[in-house]
Design a binder for these strands. Structure first.
Lengths: 183, 183
DNA sequence: CTGGTATATATCATTTTGATATATCTTATC
DNA sequence: GATAAGATATATCAAAATGATATATACCAG
């Protein structure tokens, strides 16, 4: 295994159940996957070429008319590679929340700024929570079929953690408000 | 504002209440900050040079004996820059959990692999939760003083979300086990 | 028929990550 | 008192991810 890009397994995972173009892949990532992983054209297109070089995917010109369009199909080798990754006993889980960074350093400004940043976070989370709840609602009834249980569980993870975020927001706001009146 | 590196504000935030060397900065990040932001020598040292070029920090040779050591101090300009960032109304909050990616694509392997990956995640979270709870316990009694409330709130965020993760783990494991016996 | 949006591929500069190199200081062990 | 291990300290580099931009076609509404 020469290459170690994470985008490779994201692509293989998506291609594992349907043929897609680079553009399609980006759309899929921007759909449900974005809540726990990202991808950009800047790494998708080069990755597709590398995967083809390594014979993990196979391309086919699927051009409709004048517009060029390249669809990719996973190979047996690609499926094997995907499964190997799934069985690897290490996973890199990390969170990068600028809001928490700002809160940690909030002492460099006033209490109002700290509160405002939490409110902005709260709004963002509320919106995304609505989307996650819709995903859950759509997947819950069909979770006995095929891979839907897996999709449901990732959506449920998002929904439940976002609920926890909102509870924390309320608590944090209250504490900040209390302390600012005392001082 | 020429440069836009996030590591710059992390460094400014840390230098805002004490002078530090690059190595110290890395240690601070690896302490409490790592739960929501990371930094590496590979970007800390170049960032310090850039910050000095832009006059946001000032270096002073603090060498003890033969070992070279460069301590950095924040300037008035640096404090201003930090505050501007805090007041900016946008924050990039993102989560990158390979465990969820593996779960989403778990259909490419067997149910046991999916379960195993959740168990590994659970173990990792349990360990970090202990650390976060210790942080909370240490900060809770002094949260009325100075910036401690901010530190406490970030630790509390971690502790509460990790608790939510563990609840989800239990639920997810149960669902996976139930479905595997039915099929 | 035309302007806006979606489709589609590609590239590039900037940033981050992770590993490695180098050297010194401190502490424990034998 | 030797020496090995681990912590301190700076620096650099390849690889990967990010975010923006360029280019061109297809489709649809007004």
């Amino acid at each position: 295994m020469a290459r170690e890009k994470k985008i490779h397994v994201v692509i293989l995972g998506l291609l594992n159940h349907e043929d897609l173009t680079g553009y399609d892949i980006k759309k899929r990532i921007d759909g449900a996957i974005r809540f726990f992983w990202n991808g950009s054209f800047g790494n998708i297109y080069p990755a597709l070429k590398e995967l083809e070089e390594d014979k993990l995917v196979k391309s086919s010109k699927a051009s409709e008319g004048a517009r060029e369009k390249i669809a990719y199909h996973i190979t047996a080798r690609g499926k094997k590679s995907l499964e190997n990754w799934l069985k690897e006993e290490r996973a890199c889980n990390e969170l990068r929340y600028e809001t928490l960074l700002k809160l940690f350093f909030a002492g460099a400004s006033d209490r109002e700024t700290a509160l405002r940043n939490i409110e902005l976070f709260e709004e963002e989370i509320k919106q995304d929570l609505q989307i996650l709840k819709m995903h859950c609602k759509a997947l819950e009834p069909i979770k006995e079929e095929e891979d839907h249980l897996y999709y449901y569980l990732t959506a449920l993870f998002g929904a439940e953690t976002y609920e926890a975020y909102l509870k924390w927001c309320a608590k944090a706001k209250k504490m900040l408000e209390q302390q600012s009146t005392v001082i």
